[in-house]
Design a protein around this nucleic acid. Structure first.
Lengths: 160, 160
DNA sequence: GTCCCTATACTCGGATAGCAAGTGTCCGAGTATAGGCGG
DNA sequence: CCGCCTATACTCGGACACTTGCTATCCGAGTATAGGGAC
């Protein structure tokens, strides 16, 4: 899995704190997380195309969540950044080689393919059960007050 | 996910049909599945190192399952071929940037890390619930009789 | 004082290099076998 | 006829090129703003 997924998820938790009528530029997001700005922008573009975040151009422009944080699941973000294709790709090697049968025999997917699909579904279901809002709730209870104040101060500067 | 996983799993189902006192060379396994022999050998080596298959050198040598097919799960094979590292790697970017706190604040893993671990665990649990024996049982009920005869004929030749 | 216009500075967006990991291949070390030889 | 020895052919195992996709970066198109000027 690519590194961009981690960055995108952290960015979403930060964007969830932005008031609906304001935005946060990609450069500020990169600065906050200490990651390369240009590369982070690439992943933000992918999230914008997927309809997870909205972009505003021009001066005082930037990014903002496209819908409430409670309606954005982790799998939504991952699919946007990684492309949404399953990890396992069945190439139907059972049809090749000296013992292959006729095409009709291979109408149903093989057991390996099915097992992999079940595992992938379980993975996606678990990630679909957590939203950005859940992450924020968890953060608000675990982060120390001094860190919250520090972040709040930076936030005031960044939104300017 | 690499292509070798699919090959390795199909090879295991075939190796499960090998009598305990006989072996099947890597070249025959590659021939049966129509895949590059040298590259398949690489993955078979990984499975041998993980203790899933046993290798016998010399003439009449080859591969064989190291333990009963009912005691080999899909996650065992995947870990052997892919290395067993989780897909998501937390780089602790929360500790970087202008709003970082002291080291003690970050003792517990962050919510994103935990959610990813839960999803990975669900994926692994699903794959651990299926064994090579299960795949064989499923195959025996779905494959057409003519294909079984064809494969059996090839098998007689290959084991020679 | 109010409205409009223009220059500006800042934003996103896609097109462009670099690198690591998966992919594919090869040849050498080692061994059980098969045949021949001697007893 | 039986046992032993040697040459052989076949096996696995690790070391060596190549390609695809992730990583990283840059510059251009577009726009809301801020200031100045005209009324």
């Amino acid at each position: 899995m690519g590194q961009g997924v981690e960055w995108a998820l952290h960015c979403c938790t930060l964007l969830a704190l932005v008031p609906p009528d304001q935005t946060l530029p990609a450069a500020r997001l990169a600065e906050y997380h200490g990651v390369p700005p240009a590369y982070l922008a690439k992943h933000l573009q992918a999230m914008a195309q997927a309809g997870i975040v909205e972009s505003t151009a021009g001066r005082k422009g930037g990014y903002r969540l496209a819908r409430p944080a409670s309606e954005i699941t982790l799998i939504d973000v991952i699919d946007a950044v990684e492309g949404g294709e399953p990890a396992f790709r069945c190439t139907e090697i059972r049809r090749r080689g000296p013992a292959h049968g006729v095409a009709a025999d291979y109408k149903a997917p093989c057991g390996i393919h099915r097992a992999m699909t079940r595992a992938d579904d379980a993975w996606r279901a678990e990630l679909a059960s957590t939203t950005i809002a859940d992450l924020l709730r968890e953060l608000s209870m675990s982060v120390s007050p001094v860190a919250i104040r520090k972040a709040a101060g930076w936030f005031q500067e960044a939104l300017r």
